[in-house]
Design a protein around this nucleic acid. Structure first.
Lengths: 268, 268
DNA sequence: CTGGTGAGTCACTCGGTTAATCACAAAATG
DNA sequence: CATTTTGTGATTAACCGAGTGACTCACCAG
């Protein structure tokens, strides 16, 4: 990565972490300057000199920058580890406050649902991983998991599966033999196989190139399927529960026919 | 705390975590609703019904909300633990990216300073605690620390001091005897005392009521002093190094005269 | 077939915030 | 003392989010 790109990325990330553009640029500038004046900063960052002062003041108030009150003023960025630690503390504080506030708010009338079949959508790799994880921990009898990509075999995943009750059957499939080998190595308790199904590969011709990320079936009643668009890391998932859910029925059929003929799912 | 206040706080914190007002309100609303439609949401949150859709879509993209594509659409908030976990992952990812980008950017010419005496300013409890911590870990001979408030005696602080080399003399003072007792209990290696100095107490008459938070002197060459404004938790600190620094000279005099007459700092 | 209702999308206005520039006073420099 | 540098404040322009209303579509009742 070129230095320029690195600088851009740094300011961008800082903005995502809550800083304004000027503030982000000033922090990045100071991070590579050890110490600097408003003038120097405005030269290496395209922040107008007269605006440096405000930006730095805000940064100081957040504990990210130190100010030497001399003339001219000199500024210095807090060391990176200290800065990230400070930001982390901030995050933890906020999440705590959020938890407490939401707990204090309490629920409203559940407005209970009929036991209809429900399907839900969810986006983002981390969120999907978390959800998959949670479904796994609730497994009581059987887990069927098919992974479409090496990167989805995370430590967290193996830990969760490894920690399941011995009663639970674990079947893990992969799209390639190399991936199957990896899985076998990190999950000795699991029965592994190579998926014979074709639709884990990107569909030909169909405009956007989608491939299956994960397919998870827990206790034959909860399912999660995620897709990944070809180039990016964007992951989208749908999931749902209930025996009468159409997708689950389909999934069961697929699994029983295409994957391991010996193991028929219970008939409905 | 009243339910209303809790709701307000929750949306406020969520905004600090990067959500827009509508998004925050929708998430809070969904958190107490188990499941809800756009209409229900707009009734319990004051988000216009027609804007609920956008807000929820954004939330879904961030992995905080699940969408059921039916008619009418139903929304559901991800469980709190999952949500905070997702947010934490997001934070970690960003900090990583930031670290890498800054590392890749590298330093510029150090533009080295003369060995002048420098004083720096820094705000915010966490940032100051981190800085104090870092000063402490660099201690080679002597640490003098005076605490003006119970809340400043954190586990992190005791851990850091506890982990110092045995060579390092540790002297810790407190403004009250009860605090001294606490310190003695958690820091057996330290020599403790009750500060005889008056100015740790808020100054009478002087407009804003300031009190001293911490006073830290490391190896007689680095000093950090923080103040806390009366009611709030706002903490501000100045710190600096160098033997010739005026503040350090004053601090040494104060310490040698007011605190422990037997221990004179080395003459300058 | 028609009028009515609720769901969902889209286009637009208004107001506050932020980026950007300029004018000016205070301080430093030589 | 003259000139540059430093810092503050006011002002303008661009942008984004909050808030509102028009419109389409599907469904339902008459």
């Amino acid at each position: 990565m070129s230095t320029d790109n690195a600088l851009e990325e740094a300011t961008e990330v800082l903005q995502q972490l809550g800083l304004k553009e000027y503030e982000a640029q000033c922090f990045v500038g100071l991070s590579r300057l050890s110490t600097g004046t408003a003038k120097q900063l405005s030269e290496i960052t395209d922040v107008p000199r007269t605006r440096v002062y405000d930006a730095v003041r805000v940064l100081e108030a957040q504990g990210l920058v130190e100010i030497q009150h001399s003339s001219p003023q000199r500024f210095r960025a807090v060391p990176l580890e200290e800065a990230t630690e400070t930001l982390r503390d901030q995050y933890e504080t906020r999440v705590d406050r959020l938890s407490n506030a939401l707990r204090a708010a309490g629920e409203m009338e559940p407005k209970d649902e009929g036991p209809v079949q429900e399907m839900w959508a969810l986006s983002g790799g981390e969120a999907i991983a978390n959800r998959a994880n949670q479904l796994l921990t609730n497994a009581a009898e059987e887990v069927v998991l098919v992974l479409g990509d090496d990167s989805l075999l995370t430590d967290e995943l193996t830990a969760t599966i490894g920690g399941l009750d011995d009663e639970v059957d674990v079947l893990v499939g992969a799209v390639s033999e190399s991936l199957e080998a990896q899985i076998q190595a990190s999950l000795p308790r699991a029965t592994t196989f190579v998926s014979g199904l074709e639709w884990f590969r990107p569909q030909e011709g169909s405009g956007d190139e989608l491939s299956i990320g994960r397919l998870l079936l827990v206790d034959r009643s909860n399912i999660l399927v995620s897709t990944i668009v070809a180039g990016t890391l964007e992951e989208q998932a749908i999931f749902g529960g209930g025996f009468r859910n159409g997708l689950i029925v389909i999934a069961r059929r697929l699994l029983s026919q295409g994957l391991f003929p010996g193991r028929d799912p219970r008939e409905e």
